[in-house]
Simulated scan of single mutants.
Amino acid sequence: MKVAWFDAEEWEKEYLEGKTSNLEIEFFSDSLTEETVEKAEGFDAVTVFVDSHINEKVLDSLEIDLVACRSTGYDHVDLEAAEENNITVCNVPQYGGSTVAEHTFGLILSLSRKIYEAIRKVDNGSFDHEGLRGFDLHGKKLGVIGTGAIGQNVIKIARGFGMDVVAYDPYGDESLEEELGFMYVSLEDLLDHSDVVSLHCPLTDENRHMLSSEEFELMEDTLLVNTARGALIDTEALIQALEDGSVSGAGLDVLEEECYVEEDIEVMGQLKDECDLELILEDHMLMERDDVLVTPHNAFNSREAMHRIADTTLENLRSKENRV
């Protein structure tokens, strides 16, 4: 099987050396897009990261059997167009269970103990405590939305901090309640009673903007953390919730529109058609707030997680090859 490995980093070439028997892999640092699709000519399969945009036009141009996503999410692939072209799409569902959960608590602790503000204060030459009083997590209630592998690990960590945990998941496994020490509740109850709310669910057409004005009205002085997908949150509604205090702070590893704009306003004229300018400006409004911490979609990014992604992708490719 000839495989085009897009979004490639140097470490991947070194890590995969000697592990790719029966696979002929060519690495491309480019993402797979309409502009780069010609590089995939002559290959049987492509593997991509989330920076690639596999739309209908790209899929119509490919002569492959498989798109192997090196990510859990696959919303960057047009699944209907893939099916029409008889192209299988697979992902890596379990690589980030502990990795993303740990990043989640990094954000929670940074907000609850004002760690970023403290570092910035010291950088400015001040060692006083003014404005740095935080709060204990022990005894606080954490609301976890989504109880898959990541959500379960978040619950385990929270229990270690002595937090009470409630969760919402329309497809939840009730046997987990006793095993992990939490209780399933409705989304409304979770938002109404949680001190911290953390999102760990995939993005679907049904749950886009699952947290909007109506949901934020249920919160009171709540910390919000999102390491899942940006569009789960209505950005405009979140800004208003921060203004009125229903959300006291937000830790966001994802934003609703991730076509980031540089500080130079001239870049505004060079945006791709699919980028939403209004959302980008709202994202910048969030990033400029002292009560919001934004990390660059980096929760997945540990050495161990990246190795798991590469290994599982090889398994996916070999599985497809064996079925041919």
Rank of each mutant, 00 (worst) to 15 (best):
E14L: 11
E14H: 13
E14V: 12
E14D: 12
Y15T: 00
Y15M: 00
Y15E: 01
L16S: 09
L16W: 04
L16Q: 10
L16A: 10
L16E: 04
E17C: 03
E17L: 11
E17K: 15
E17D: 13
E17A: 04
G18P: 08
G18I: 08
G18Y: 13
G18T: 09
G18A: 10
G18Q: 06
K19D: 11
K19I: 12
T20C: 12
T20D: 11
T20L: 11
S21C: 09
S21W: 02
S21I: 00
S21D: 09
N22E: 15
N22T: 13
L23Y: 11
L23T: 10
L23N: 06
E24Y: 09
E24L: 09
E24R: 06
I25T: 05
I25H: 04
I25D: 03
I25E: 10
I25S: 06
I25V: 14
I25C: 10
I25G: 03
E26Y: 03
E26M: 02
E26P: 01
E26T: 14
E26K: 11
E26N: 06
F27T: 01
F27R: 03
F27C: 02
F27Y: 15
F27V: 03
F27N: 05
F27L: 00
F27S: 00
F28R: 07
D30I: 02
D30C: 10
D30P: 07
D30Q: 15
D30R: 13
S31L: 09
S31H: 13
S31I: 02
L32A: 09
L32C: 06
L32I: 10
L32M: 12
L32K: 05
L32Y: 10
T33R: 13
T33F: 08
T33W: 07
T33I: 07
T33A: 11
T33K: 10
T33H: 05
E34A: 13
E34W: 12
E34S: 13
E35Q: 15
E35I: 06
E35N: 10
E35D: 14
T36I: 04
T36E: 03
V37N: 08
V37L: 03
V37K: 14
E38D: 08
E38T: 06
K39M: 08
K39I: 05
K39S: 07
K39H: 05
K39D: 02
K39Y: 10
A40H: 03
A40I: 01
A40G: 00
A40Q: 01
A40N: 01
A40F: 08
E41Y: 12
E41A: 05
G42D: 08
G42N: 02
G42C: 00
G42Y: 04
F43T: 08
F43M: 07
F43S: 00
D44R: 06
D44N: 15
D44V: 08
D44H: 14
A45D: 09
A45P: 03
V46W: 13
V46S: 06
T47N: 07
T47A: 02
T47F: 07
T47S: 15
T47I: 09
T47C: 14
V48N: 08
V48Y: 07
V48E: 04
V48T: 14
F49G: 05
F49R: 14
F49W: 14
F49Y: 12
